[in-house]
């Protein structure tokens, strides 16, 4: 393959495939009325968004403690309002959606690309199509929306646990009353913060889902291509969430 061909494939073909997959997912939304499609969706939400609850809360609590400790070191004990503000900015604006996306990539994105590539190699997708079942409706669309919903759920778990962990840590370690931080937090927690966090988590979910599905479906010949597809999906998902993060942050906060 020539250099020109590689550039064309990476810059034009691959992003078009990602966008086309999402376009088809939206086009196939009416298929939610089909029971097996709903079942696939609910299973994915359970796997990505519910089973991860405990781990996400755990990570959130500890992340909250670490962040508030560093902020308190920086601002001093008397600046409760400022500390609360920074906590909101760091957790709600940035870390919540980002951590949720990273956990989703590690747990669900890899699982989706492995599952789809194995199904393709074993000709299961072909067999599904032979039965008149549209693979895009049955396999792809529910995964895309389940991952996006799960990203929102995980972001919520993380943010709640991190804020709670942060405030509890200050009360326990430095004996500072809850109200001192909550005042700063509540004044900084505007609707813009919440919408930015929501938009980020939804778009991260779509990004991870499309990258994982496209890379999973690209494997068709050999089982040895599966680990390569998973690695590619993981790296590209990380890349795409950081690109999206920059775009959304610029749109909302500049």
């Amino acid at each position: 393959m020539s250099g020109k061909e590689i550039v064309r494939k990476r810059i034009i073909v691959y992003p078009s495939e990602l966008v086309y997959l999402l376009y088809n997912a939206f086009k196939n939304i009416p298929s939610f009325k089909i029971k097996p499609v709903r079942t696939v969706f609910l299973r994915q939400v359970y796997f990505c968004g519910i089973e991860t609850f405990g781990k996400m809360v755990f990570i959130g609590l500890f992340a909250g403690i670490v962040i508030i400790t560093q902020i308190t070191n920086l601002t001093g004990l008397g600046s409760g309002v400022l500390t609360g503000k920074i906590l909101i900015w760091v957790i709600v604006r940035e870390l919540g959606p980002l951590f949720a996306a990273i956990i989703i990539i590690a747990r669900s994105g890899t699982a989706i690309s492995a599952e789809l590539s194995a199904m393709n190699v074993n000709r299961e997708i072909e067999n599904i199509e032979m039965m008149g079942i549209d693979a895009e409706k049955y396999l792809i669309m529910p995964r895309v929306f389940a991952l996006s919903l799960s990203a929102v759920m995980l972001t919520f778990y993380f943010e709640f646990a991190a804020l709670f962990g942060g405030i509890t840590a200050t009360s326990v370690f430095w004996d500072i009353p809850f109200e001192q931080y909550t005042t700063g937090m509540l004044s900084s927690l505007t609707i813009t913060e919440l919408i930015a966090s929501l938009v980020k988590s939804i778009l991260f979910g779509f990004g991870i889902a499309s990258v994982s599905c496209v890379n999973g479906l690209a494997v068709s010949e050999s089982i040895t291509q599966i680990p390569q597809a998973i690695t590619r999906a993981t790296i590209h998902s990380l890349l795409i969430i950081f690109i999206l993060d920059v775009i959304i942050t610029v749109v909302f906060f500049i």
């Binding site: 029971k35 097996p36 599952e115 194995a118 074993n122 000709r123 299961e124 067999n127 032979m130």
Partner: peptide
């Protein structure tokens, strides 16, 4: 179609596989 290898989906239970086209269509 009756595929030689059964054409079953590996992440569905046997009865779910059998019922899949009927439940879908």
């Amino acid at each position: 179609i009756v595929p030689a290898d059964g054409g079953l989906v590996s992440n569905l239970k046997v009865w779910e596989n059998i019922m899949l086209p009927l439940m879908y269509h």
